[in-house]
Simulated scan of single mutants.
Amino acid sequence: MDIENLKFEDGLVTAIAQDYKTGDVLMVAFMDKEALKKTIETKRGYYWSRSRRKLWKKGESSGHEQIVHDILIDCDADAVLLKVEQIGGACHTGYRSCFYRTIDGEVIGEKLFEPDEIYKQ
Rank of each mutant, 00 (worst) to 15 (best):
N5A: 05
V107D: 14
C91S: 12
G23V: 10
T39W: 05
E106D: 15
L82E: 03
V28Y: 07
C91G: 14
C75E: 13
S49C: 08
S61G: 05
V25D: 09
T39D: 02
I118Y: 00
T93K: 08
L6S: 00
G94M: 12
L26H: 07
G105F: 12
A17V: 05
I71Q: 10
D24E: 14
I40Q: 13
W48E: 03
K43R: 13
S97T: 14
K7V: 01
Y100F: 15
Y119V: 11
E41S: 11
K111N: 09
L36G: 01
Y100A: 10
R53S: 12
Y119M: 05
R53M: 13
T42C: 11
E117M: 03
W56H: 06
L81P: 14
V80L: 13
D104V: 09
Q18R: 08
K37C: 00
K38T: 03
E65H: 15
D70V: 08
A90H: 01
A77V: 11
K37P: 00
E34L: 10
P115N: 02
V84D: 12
G45H: 03
M31Y: 04
G59N: 06
Q66H: 14
K54Y: 07
E41G: 04
V80Y: 02
N5P: 00
R96I: 09
M27T: 13
C75P: 11
D70K: 14
T22K: 05
Y119T: 12
K54H: 05
K83H: 10
Y100Q: 08
N5F: 02
G105R: 10
D19H: 07
G63V: 14
I87S: 01
D104L: 10
Y46E: 00
L81A: 02
E4Q: 10
Y20H: 10
Q66P: 00
G63Q: 06
S49R: 03
Y100V: 09
K7S: 09
H92M: 08
V84I: 15
C91E: 04
G45T: 02
D19S: 04
W48A: 00
K83R: 14
R50L: 04
G11M: 09
Y46T: 01
K120Y: 03
A90P: 01
T93C: 09
H69E: 15
A79M: 15
I40F: 06
T102G: 14
I71P: 08
D76A: 15
E114L: 04
H64K: 04
D74I: 06
E117D: 13
E110P: 09
D78N: 13
V107Q: 09
L12Y: 07
V28K: 02
G11H: 05
K37V: 07
E117Y: 02
D70W: 12
Q66S: 01
Q86W: 11
D2K: 11
E85R: 13
A77C: 11
V13W: 03
Y95G: 01
D10R: 03
I67T: 06
S97A: 12
T42L: 11
E110D: 05
Q121P: 10
S51G: 06
L26N: 07
H64G: 09
